[in-house]
Design a protein around this nucleic acid. Structure first.
Length: 297
DNA sequence: CTCGATCCCTGGACGC
DNA sequence: TGCGTCCAGGGATCGA
Protein backbone atom coordinates (compact mmCIF):
# COMPACT_ATOMS: atom_id res chain seq x y z
CA UNK A 1 0.00 0.00 0.00
CA UNK A 2 2.79 2.40 0.87
CA UNK A 3 4.58 1.62 -2.36
CA UNK A 4 1.51 2.53 -4.35
CA UNK A 5 0.89 5.69 -2.36
CA UNK A 6 4.21 7.06 -3.41
CA UNK A 7 3.95 6.03 -7.04
CA UNK A 8 0.35 6.13 -8.26
CA UNK A 9 -1.55 8.42 -5.89
CA UNK A 10 -2.90 11.37 -7.84
CA UNK A 11 -2.75 9.60 -11.21
CA UNK A 12 -5.77 9.31 -13.43
CA UNK A 13 -6.95 6.05 -14.92
CA UNK A 14 -7.38 6.29 -18.67
CA UNK A 15 -8.45 2.78 -19.61
CA UNK A 16 -9.18 -0.55 -18.01
CA UNK A 17 -8.23 -3.85 -19.63
CA UNK A 18 -9.57 -7.07 -18.16
CA UNK A 19 -8.26 -10.49 -19.00
CA UNK A 20 -9.37 -13.06 -16.46
CA UNK A 21 -12.03 -11.52 -14.25
CA UNK A 22 -13.51 -14.29 -12.09
CA UNK A 23 -12.03 -12.67 -8.99
CA UNK A 24 -13.77 -9.35 -9.68
CA UNK A 25 -17.17 -8.76 -8.06
CA UNK A 26 -18.65 -6.93 -11.03
CA UNK A 27 -16.21 -6.64 -13.94
CA UNK A 28 -18.61 -4.56 -16.00
CA UNK A 29 -18.86 -1.94 -13.27
CA UNK A 30 -15.09 -1.72 -13.22
CA UNK A 31 -14.86 -1.08 -16.94
CA UNK A 32 -17.70 1.40 -16.81
CA UNK A 33 -16.73 3.41 -13.74
CA UNK A 34 -12.95 3.61 -13.66
CA UNK A 35 -11.90 5.23 -16.92
CA UNK A 36 -11.37 8.95 -16.36
CA UNK A 37 -11.23 8.66 -12.59
CA UNK A 38 -8.39 9.90 -10.46
CA UNK A 39 -6.79 7.76 -7.77
CA UNK A 40 -7.17 10.31 -4.99
CA UNK A 41 -5.44 8.22 -2.39
CA UNK A 42 -4.70 4.74 -1.20
CA UNK A 43 -5.60 3.35 2.18
CA UNK A 44 -5.21 0.09 3.99
CA UNK A 45 -8.36 -1.55 5.28
CA UNK A 46 -7.61 -4.90 6.84
CA UNK A 47 -6.29 -7.08 4.06
CA UNK A 48 -7.69 -4.74 1.46
CA UNK A 49 -6.08 -1.85 -0.26
CA UNK A 50 -8.60 0.82 -0.94
CA UNK A 51 -8.00 3.07 -3.92
CA UNK A 52 -10.13 6.10 -3.27
CA UNK A 53 -11.53 7.55 -6.46
CA UNK A 54 -12.14 11.18 -7.28
CA UNK A 55 -14.21 12.50 -10.12
CA UNK A 56 -12.39 15.62 -11.27
CA UNK A 57 -8.79 15.54 -12.49
CA UNK A 58 -7.25 17.48 -9.63
CA UNK A 59 -9.70 17.46 -6.80
CA UNK A 60 -9.52 19.81 -3.86
CA UNK A 61 -6.87 18.53 -1.55
CA UNK A 62 -8.08 20.21 1.59
CA UNK A 63 -10.06 18.45 4.21
CA UNK A 64 -11.06 14.85 4.47
CA UNK A 65 -13.68 13.84 1.99
CA UNK A 66 -16.14 11.06 2.56
CA UNK A 67 -15.14 7.76 1.15
CA UNK A 68 -17.76 7.78 -1.55
CA UNK A 69 -16.20 5.59 -4.19
CA UNK A 70 -13.35 3.16 -4.15
CA UNK A 71 -11.66 0.26 -5.81
CA UNK A 72 -11.09 -2.52 -3.28
CA UNK A 73 -8.14 -4.78 -3.91
CA UNK A 74 -7.39 -7.90 -1.89
CA UNK A 75 -4.13 -9.57 -2.90
CA UNK A 76 -5.07 -12.97 -1.56
CA UNK A 77 -2.00 -15.17 -1.48
CA UNK A 78 -0.29 -14.31 -4.71
CA UNK A 79 -1.76 -11.01 -5.79
CA UNK A 80 0.45 -8.15 -6.87
CA UNK A 81 -0.46 -4.60 -7.85
CA UNK A 82 2.22 -2.30 -9.13
CA UNK A 83 3.02 0.26 -11.82
CA UNK A 84 4.91 -0.80 -14.94
CA UNK A 85 6.16 0.81 -18.07
CA UNK A 86 4.19 -0.23 -21.15
CA UNK A 87 7.25 -1.71 -22.81
CA UNK A 88 7.68 -4.22 -20.00
CA UNK A 89 6.21 -7.48 -21.30
CA UNK A 90 3.08 -8.75 -19.61
CA UNK A 91 3.76 -11.66 -17.32
CA UNK A 92 1.72 -14.81 -17.44
CA UNK A 93 -0.92 -14.01 -14.84
CA UNK A 94 -1.52 -10.33 -15.42
CA UNK A 95 -5.30 -10.14 -15.34
CA UNK A 96 -5.99 -6.42 -15.09
CA UNK A 97 -4.24 -3.39 -16.53
CA UNK A 98 -5.08 0.22 -15.73
CA UNK A 99 -3.54 2.63 -18.17
CA UNK A 100 -2.46 5.75 -16.25
CA UNK A 101 -2.21 9.39 -17.37
CA UNK A 102 1.57 9.48 -16.92
CA UNK A 103 2.19 6.78 -19.50
CA UNK A 104 2.56 3.95 -17.06
CA UNK A 105 0.27 0.99 -16.41
CA UNK A 106 -0.96 -0.21 -13.05
CA UNK A 107 -1.03 -3.99 -13.41
CA UNK A 108 -2.71 -6.60 -11.25
CA UNK A 109 -1.09 -10.02 -11.34
CA UNK A 110 -2.33 -13.04 -9.42
CA UNK A 111 -1.36 -16.60 -10.27
CA UNK A 112 -3.87 -18.29 -7.97
CA UNK A 113 -6.59 -15.69 -8.18
CA UNK A 114 -7.38 -15.92 -4.48
CA UNK A 115 -7.46 -12.16 -4.50
CA UNK A 116 -10.48 -10.00 -5.00
CA UNK A 117 -11.24 -6.75 -6.75
CA UNK A 118 -14.39 -4.67 -6.53
CA UNK A 119 -15.60 -1.24 -7.47
CA UNK A 120 -17.95 -0.03 -4.75
CA UNK A 121 -19.68 3.26 -4.05
CA UNK A 122 -21.95 4.87 -1.53
CA UNK A 123 -24.07 2.60 0.62
CA UNK A 124 -22.67 -0.56 -0.94
CA UNK A 125 -19.15 0.54 -0.05
CA UNK A 126 -20.15 1.45 3.49
CA UNK A 127 -21.95 -1.86 3.95
CA UNK A 128 -18.96 -3.80 2.71
CA UNK A 129 -16.56 -2.08 5.08
CA UNK A 130 -18.90 -2.44 8.03
CA UNK A 131 -18.62 -6.20 7.88
CA UNK A 132 -15.12 -6.04 9.25
CA UNK A 133 -13.85 -5.84 12.80
CA UNK A 134 -11.45 -3.39 14.37
CA UNK A 135 -8.02 -2.58 13.02
CA UNK A 136 -5.56 -4.62 15.11
CA UNK A 137 -3.22 -1.65 15.40
CA UNK A 138 -5.95 0.57 16.80
CA UNK A 139 -8.20 -1.78 18.74
CA UNK A 140 -8.42 -0.95 22.42
CA UNK A 141 -8.07 -3.37 25.27
CA UNK A 142 -11.79 -3.10 25.96
CA UNK A 143 -12.89 -3.54 22.34
CA UNK A 144 -10.64 -6.54 21.89
CA UNK A 145 -11.81 -8.20 25.09
CA UNK A 146 -15.41 -7.57 24.20
CA UNK A 147 -15.27 -9.09 20.74
CA UNK A 148 -13.30 -12.11 21.96
CA UNK A 149 -15.72 -12.73 24.77
CA UNK A 150 -18.69 -12.53 22.46
CA UNK A 151 -18.07 -16.04 21.13
CA UNK A 152 -16.92 -19.47 22.20
CA UNK A 153 -14.49 -19.90 19.36
CA UNK A 154 -10.90 -20.88 19.70
CA UNK A 155 -8.50 -18.02 19.91
CA UNK A 156 -6.75 -18.91 16.65
CA UNK A 157 -10.08 -18.88 14.82
CA UNK A 158 -10.89 -15.52 16.38
CA UNK A 159 -7.61 -13.98 15.29
CA UNK A 160 -8.21 -15.11 11.73
CA UNK A 161 -11.83 -13.97 11.74
CA UNK A 162 -11.90 -10.73 9.77
CA UNK A 163 -15.12 -9.68 11.47
CA UNK A 164 -13.30 -9.73 14.82
CA UNK A 165 -10.09 -8.05 13.72
CA UNK A 166 -9.40 -6.97 10.18
CA UNK A 167 -6.07 -7.82 8.65
CA UNK A 168 -4.55 -10.59 10.73
CA UNK A 169 -3.41 -13.59 8.70
CA UNK A 170 -2.13 -17.03 9.54
CA UNK A 171 1.54 -16.19 9.99
CA UNK A 172 0.96 -13.29 12.36
CA UNK A 173 -1.72 -15.13 14.34
CA UNK A 174 0.75 -17.94 15.07
CA UNK A 175 3.56 -15.55 15.89
CA UNK A 176 1.44 -13.53 18.30
CA UNK A 177 0.11 -16.62 20.08
CA UNK A 178 3.62 -17.93 20.53
CA UNK A 179 4.82 -14.63 21.94
CA UNK A 180 1.86 -14.47 24.32
CA UNK A 181 2.30 -18.16 25.25
CA UNK A 182 -1.25 -19.05 24.33
CA UNK A 183 -2.20 -22.36 22.72
CA UNK A 184 -4.15 -21.87 19.48
CA UNK A 185 -7.07 -24.10 20.47
CA UNK A 186 -7.86 -22.37 23.72
CA UNK A 187 -11.30 -20.81 23.85
CA UNK A 188 -10.80 -17.08 23.53
CA UNK A 189 -13.48 -16.23 26.03
CA UNK A 190 -11.68 -18.32 28.65
CA UNK A 191 -8.37 -16.50 28.42
CA UNK A 192 -7.40 -14.55 31.49
CA UNK A 193 -7.68 -10.79 30.98
CA UNK A 194 -3.93 -10.46 31.32
CA UNK A 195 -3.38 -13.07 28.62
CA UNK A 196 -5.72 -11.32 26.26
CA UNK A 197 -4.02 -8.01 26.83
CA UNK A 198 -0.60 -9.54 26.31
CA UNK A 199 -1.86 -11.05 23.08
CA UNK A 200 -3.22 -7.75 21.84
CA UNK A 201 0.02 -5.94 22.58
CA UNK A 202 2.27 -8.60 21.09
CA UNK A 203 0.13 -8.83 17.99
CA UNK A 204 0.41 -5.10 17.55
CA UNK A 205 4.19 -5.13 17.96
CA UNK A 206 4.56 -8.00 15.52
CA UNK A 207 2.40 -6.32 12.88
CA UNK A 208 4.25 -3.02 13.18
CA UNK A 209 7.59 -4.74 12.83
CA UNK A 210 6.39 -6.82 9.89
CA UNK A 211 5.06 -3.74 8.12
CA UNK A 212 8.39 -2.01 8.68
CA UNK A 213 10.13 -4.99 7.08
CA UNK A 214 7.66 -5.12 4.17
CA UNK A 215 6.07 -8.38 5.25
CA UNK A 216 7.08 -12.01 5.03
CA UNK A 217 8.39 -13.48 1.81
CA UNK A 218 7.97 -17.25 2.05
CA UNK A 219 8.16 -17.97 -1.65
CA UNK A 220 7.84 -15.10 -4.06
CA UNK A 221 6.05 -12.25 -2.34
CA UNK A 222 7.37 -8.80 -3.22
CA UNK A 223 5.98 -5.39 -2.41
CA UNK A 224 4.77 -2.83 -4.94
CA UNK A 225 8.36 -1.78 -5.52
CA UNK A 226 9.43 -5.33 -6.29
CA UNK A 227 11.32 -5.75 -3.02
CA UNK A 228 10.79 -8.92 -0.99
CA UNK A 229 9.88 -8.66 2.68
CA UNK A 230 12.27 -9.51 5.48
CA UNK A 231 9.97 -10.43 8.30
CA UNK A 232 10.32 -14.16 7.63
CA UNK A 233 13.72 -13.80 9.29
CA UNK A 234 11.88 -12.97 12.49
CA UNK A 235 9.41 -15.85 12.50
CA UNK A 236 9.56 -17.70 15.81
CA UNK A 237 7.13 -20.54 15.07
CA UNK A 238 5.56 -20.20 11.66
CA UNK A 239 7.06 -22.76 9.28
CA UNK A 240 9.28 -24.19 12.03
CA UNK A 241 7.57 -27.53 12.66
CA UNK A 242 10.05 -29.97 14.23
CA UNK A 243 12.58 -27.28 15.00
CA UNK A 244 13.45 -26.06 18.49
CA UNK A 245 11.45 -23.44 20.31
CA UNK A 246 13.48 -20.23 20.57
CA UNK A 247 12.38 -19.91 24.21
CA UNK A 248 12.52 -23.40 25.67
CA UNK A 249 13.98 -25.71 23.06
CA UNK A 250 10.97 -28.00 22.78
CA UNK A 251 10.00 -29.23 19.30
CA UNK A 252 7.61 -26.91 17.53
CA UNK A 253 4.42 -28.67 16.53
CA UNK A 254 1.93 -28.06 13.78
CA UNK A 255 -1.78 -28.82 13.92
CA UNK A 256 -4.77 -27.69 11.91
CA UNK A 257 -6.99 -25.14 13.60
CA UNK A 258 -9.75 -23.28 11.84
CA UNK A 259 -8.68 -25.10 8.70
CA UNK A 260 -5.20 -23.58 8.78
CA UNK A 261 -1.76 -24.75 9.79
CA UNK A 262 -1.06 -23.67 13.33
CA UNK A 263 2.45 -23.74 14.69
CA UNK A 264 3.08 -23.65 18.42
CA UNK A 265 5.41 -24.74 21.18
CA UNK A 266 3.80 -27.52 23.22
CA UNK A 267 5.73 -26.49 26.30
CA UNK A 268 5.43 -22.69 26.22
CA UNK A 269 1.86 -22.79 24.98
CA UNK A 270 0.11 -25.44 27.07
CA UNK A 271 -2.97 -27.08 25.60
CA UNK A 272 -6.30 -26.21 27.16
CA UNK A 273 -7.83 -28.48 29.78
CA UNK A 274 -10.04 -31.16 28.36
CA UNK A 275 -8.12 -31.29 25.14
CA UNK A 276 -6.84 -34.37 23.32
CA UNK A 277 -6.37 -37.54 25.40
CA UNK A 278 -7.52 -36.10 28.65
CA UNK A 279 -10.93 -35.60 27.16
CA UNK A 280 -11.35 -38.93 25.42
CA UNK A 281 -10.42 -40.84 28.55
CA UNK A 282 -12.69 -39.03 30.89
CA UNK A 283 -15.83 -39.13 28.85
CA UNK A 284 -17.84 -40.42 31.79
CA UNK A 285 -16.85 -37.44 33.83
CA UNK A 286 -18.90 -35.30 31.57
CA UNK A 287 -21.56 -34.66 34.12
CA UNK A 288 -25.15 -35.26 33.21
CA UNK A 289 -26.70 -33.45 30.32
CA UNK A 290 -26.26 -29.92 31.24
CA UNK A 291 -29.45 -27.97 30.58
CA UNK A 292 -27.27 -25.76 28.38
CA UNK A 293 -29.25 -22.69 29.19
CA UNK A 294 -32.38 -22.47 27.12
CA UNK A 295 -30.83 -21.58 23.86
CA UNK A 296 -33.61 -21.92 21.34
CA UNK A 297 -35.31 -18.65 20.91
C1' DC B 1 -23.44 -21.06 17.18
C1' DT B 2 -19.30 -23.22 15.86
C1' DC B 3 -17.12 -26.61 13.57
C1' DG B 4 -15.01 -29.30 9.76
C1' DA B 5 -15.13 -30.28 4.92
C1' DT B 6 -15.01 -28.64 0.33
C1' DC B 7 -14.10 -25.70 -3.34
C1' DC B 8 -11.59 -22.16 -5.79
C1' DC B 9 -6.39 -21.99 -8.16
C1' DT B 10 -1.54 -22.72 -9.45
C1' DG B 11 3.26 -23.54 -8.59
C1' DG B 12 6.51 -25.81 -6.06
C1' DA B 13 8.05 -29.87 -3.54
C1' DC B 14 8.46 -34.57 -3.57
C1' DG B 15 8.37 -39.50 -5.00
C1' DC B 16 9.10 -42.79 -8.46
C1' DT C 1 13.80 -36.00 -17.48
C1' DG C 2 9.16 -36.18 -16.74
C1' DC C 3 4.96 -37.22 -14.79
C1' DG C 4 1.57 -37.77 -11.00
C1' DT C 5 0.27 -36.42 -6.35
C1' DC C 6 0.01 -33.54 -2.48
C1' DC C 7 -0.05 -29.24 -0.26
C1' DA C 8 -0.36 -24.22 0.93
C1' DG C 9 -3.59 -20.55 1.97
C1' DG C 10 -8.07 -16.48 2.40
C1' DG C 11 -12.55 -16.81 2.14
C1' DA C 12 -17.29 -18.34 0.83
C1' DT C 13 -20.49 -21.88 1.52
C1' DC C 14 -22.81 -25.87 3.26
C1' DG C 15 -24.02 -29.58 6.20
C1' DA C 16 -23.31 -31.57 10.80
Amino acid sequence: MRGLQSTVAGRRILTVTLRKSDFIDDPVALERELPGRQIAGIERFGKFMLLRLATAPAQSSSGIEPLAEALLVHLGMTGHLAPHFPDQPLTKHTHVTFELDDGRELRYTDARRFGRMAYLAGAALAAELERFGADPLLVTKEEFAQSVQASHSRIKALLLDQTVLRGVGNIYADEALWKAKIHPTRIGARLAPVELETLRKELRKILLKAIELRGSSISDFVDAGGTPGDYQQHHRVYGREGESCFRCGARIRRIIVAGRSSHFCPRCQPAPRGASRARRHSRKNTKRNRPRATSKR
